[in-house]
Structures are given as C-alpha cells and as structure tokens.
Design a protein around this nucleic acid. Structure first.
Lengths: 250, 250
DNA sequence: GCATGCGTTCTCATGGGGCGAGAATACTCC
DNA sequence: GGAGTATTCTCGCCCCATGAGAACGCATGC
C-alpha cells in the first residue's frame, strides 16, 4: 500500500511507543510482528534522530524531545490569529457557552481555537487540532456546506460517517439535503448528533471573495437551548461577522 | 553516519517543513540537496502517514495532525504529577518568583513543570520539555551534581558547554569543582550565567534511596535577590522536601 | 565461579525496493 | 493556445535494508 515500507514501519514503531507511553523493544516487536533485530534498528534510528529516548535503567523506550517540538510547530502554525481568538472568547462570554473556531486545512476540517471555562466546559473529545466527525458537528456542517459537491463526496468517502448517537446523520443523501438548508440559512444546528444531551450551533466566516473559510460555533447542554435559539443565532452571526471582517482585511 | 539513510532523510524533510511552517517540494529539495522526485516520494509518504498535509490550493506542504498527537503523548508522559505541580506552584506563590521542576530522562535533563504568572514570568527560553544548557541553569547544576563522574562527562561531551553570558561556566574542571560544592551544600545558585540580570537557585528532590531524582528551582531578577538568599534557600529546601516525600511514597 | 536469562548488538548473504535522470502529465496563468 | 510550473511516472541499476542466527554484555541466582 504505502510505497516505502521503511517509512511506514518507522512511524508504526514511533506510534506504538507513543501509544504505550513507555515500552520495550520486545513488546514492539511482537505487537507489530517485526523481527527483533529490525525493531532495534528502527528504535535506534529514532533515538539517533531524537524522536525517542532510550532509558538506560530499565531498557525502555519513550518519546523524545523532537516529538514535542513537532507538536509546538504544528500548534504555532495552526493556532487562530488573535482577533479570531478574541471574537471566539467574546462569543463564549456573551452566550455563556463554550465556543470554537474551525477552518479548512487542505482537504481537512480542523479546530484551531477553543474558548471555555469551568462553568461552560468544552465538549470532551474536542480539543485544538480536532479533525474528525465533521458530519456530526455544527462547525463541520458549516464547512462541509462550503465545499463543492465532489470535495464533500471524497471527504465523506475517505472518512465515512460514523454513528455517534441515535441522532447522528448516517446517510449521505440525508446529509446533503441538510447541508443545502444549512447553506441557505447561514446557520448550522446540531442536536445531539455528536454527544447525547448536547446541542451545537455554528455560523460561517467568509473572506473577501465571500468564500466560506471558517466556522464559529458554540456548544451547550440541550436543556439550556430552548427559547434561546434566536439569540444564539444572532450572536453567532454577529461574531462570525467580526471574524469575516478580519478575514477581509488580512 | 546514521545507519538507515531513508529514515534520517525522512525526518530531515519533516523538520524542514516544520521549521518553515509551510513550504514547497522544490524548496525542500534545494534546501536539503535531494533530487526532486525523491523529495516528492518522501513528502507523499509523510502525507500518507498523516504527518504532513498537502494544501491543494497552492501546492504547499505543512505539518499534519499526527505531529500534534505526538506532542500530546510526549506532554502527557512527561508532565510532573499533581503533587509536584502543587509544590512548584506554592513555591512560586511563596517566593513571588517563577518556579520550575526538572528530572532526569535517560541521559537527558528535562523541565517537566513550570509555574509562573504575568508578574513573575518564566525565563523566555524555558518551557515544558526544555532540555538544554544544564551547565548554565540552577536545576541543571543540581541534576548534573547527582550524576556519576562519567555520566556527567559524557553528557557534557555530547552537548558541549555553550557560552551564553559573560558569566557562563565554560570549563569542565571549573564546573566540576562548582558541582562538588553544589552537591555538599544541597543548593545550586546560578548568577547571570544563563541570562543577563537573572539569578536562579535550585534544590534537589530525592527518592526513597536518597538518590537525586529531580530539581526544584526558581528564577528572579538579580536585583531582587539581594538579602533574600537565606529565605530563598529555606523555601526551596522546604518545598523540595515536600516533593521528596511524595517521591518516597510513590 | 559457573550457569542462566535477558537485552542488545553483530555478522552476513540475499534480493527487495529505493534511487534519480529524464520524460510525461496535469495544472495554472497569461 | 502556449509558456511555465507542479507533480507523477518509467525504468534499470545497485545500494542497503533485511532477518536469521550467533555473539556479546550484564545482570542475578545457585
């Protein structure tokens, strides 16, 4: 499948170490079904490149500093710019709800900022860099609705549409109709399709050409939403508009 | 030098992308002096493994989500346990100074927690995962003094003793004498050897066998230190003692 | 001291597959 | 439609990754 098997293997080893936190050459070998000498070669190469460290005491391997550096570089590159962060934080304050900002990244959809607090915590699986389940999140719907039909098709093809709750939209045609509506309304709602008892809403952020480039979203316990729909939508539009203004300027 | 050149090359490409934030195949090729087709092969393998993404719009390559995952795993593995973090934070509050906690990690010396605030900010280059310049930091001196002579020798051999300020100790024999003193006093001072106008101090944290396993440290503007030396030392000893107690228990 | 076990490295013959020049293709922008 | 650029394909060469097996180093136990 992958052209160069060495590289694939190397990352398999690296990820095996990452997953277990701390492991031995033997464990990696039997887990990945690679002969021991080869595993040692790979591990040593990874150590030489500072992606692993070899703990001499007990002969275990763990992640090395370069792994963290990569993470930092990724974060630095992707973190939403300060005006966007501010708008997201104000949305959080205004609606008393955890707020999110997401963008396209190549073919992907990625969360690049979150604003929450102890009273209004983020949804558990959501974090900076989150890039799954677009079909079941409000910001995902916004960004899916901004794609061309074929982009969206290959996106859903590649990732599938996992069923996360009884309300998750699991059929492409249903989703497609739903996204048309999202697109015309300029707001996406997500009612317990991602997590039980949780509702999200999102609005698009556009650049100078009017193209959708991002999504601003909030999450709330479903019981708190009733009656506030209009207020949520107008706040989303308001702050998404702020973001769009920044996008047009920059 | 590295046995498997493929792996070395692959990481060279990955790091080139990380360093530039966003780059093209051609730039990588001429920067690393690797023929273009080979660069594309490596880039595509990295994309296939989710360590890079290929931005279709402008044909640039950037870091992929797996990079962030690695960073998270590293952080999760290394972050100091909660009692240690609390002790470090209390030291910060007590002395009104940014506080740090560092440990051994294989042959390395790594910062695994920092506690600071706007009034008492951390030293700029210091961050979670920092693992350089042990000869010029207080916590580094503590942990170097806890090594055997040959461990320390090979450590300094491998990393050298870069001169960071006019006061940086740059000779191994001088450092060695200094570390003997540190070891007997049970406190390390660092006076503007790492950053100008900045002074640090550290105390060892020991496990049940009395072996040094960590270092608790503070940094302050040098002008604020005068007259407080005794108070700083006793607070360091106090909270390092708390950490040691935790280490004996765990 | 000798035996045992485990982690790690070495040796070496084999052949899979990585390599890179060059060409071909797929784009985009005038 | 043509020039320029980004990306992939082709293909034969030969390098070097591979893995079985053995050897080494270093514990611990008897």
């Amino acid at each position: 499948m992958a052209t160069t098997s060495v590289i694939h293997r190397t990352f398999a080893v690296l990820e095996a170490v990452a997953a277990s936190g701390s492991t031995t050459a033997k464990e990696v070998a039997q887990q990945l079904e690679i002969p021991l000498p080869s595993v040692y070669r790979l591990l040593n190469d990874l150590v030489a490149n500072q992606y692993l460290v070899h703990l001499k005491d007990d002969g275990r391997f763990e992640l090395g500093p370069k792994c963290f550096d990569l993470g930092l570089s990724f974060r630095q590159r992707l973190l939403a710019p300060s005006p966007i962060r501010q708008a997201t934080a104000e949305l959080h304050r205004t609606l008393q709800a955890a707020s999110y900002f997401a963008v396209y990244r190549g073919a992907d959809i990625v969360l690049t900022y979150l604003s929450d607090c102890d009273q209004h915590p983020r949804l558990r699986p959501l974090r900076f860099g989150f890039h799954e389940a677009a079909h079941a999140t409000a910001f995902g719907k916004i960004l899916l609705s901004g794609m061309t039909a074929e982009q969206r098709g290959s996106y859903l093809e590649a990732r599938g549409m996992p069923i996360l709750t009884p309300h998750t939209i699991a059929r492409q045609d249903v989703l497609s109709d739903h996204l048309d509506e999202v697109s015309t309304r300029g707001i996406a709602w997500e009612h317990e399709e991602f997590l039980p008892r949780t509702t999200c809403a999102a609005a698009p952020v556009r650049n100078g050409s009017g193209m959708c480039v991002g999504a601003l979203a909030v999450s709330m316990p479903s019981r708190k939403v009733t009656g506030l729909e209009a207020r949520i939508e107008s706040a989303l539009r308001e702050y998404a508009g702020q973001c769009s203004r920044y996008m047009r300027a920059g």
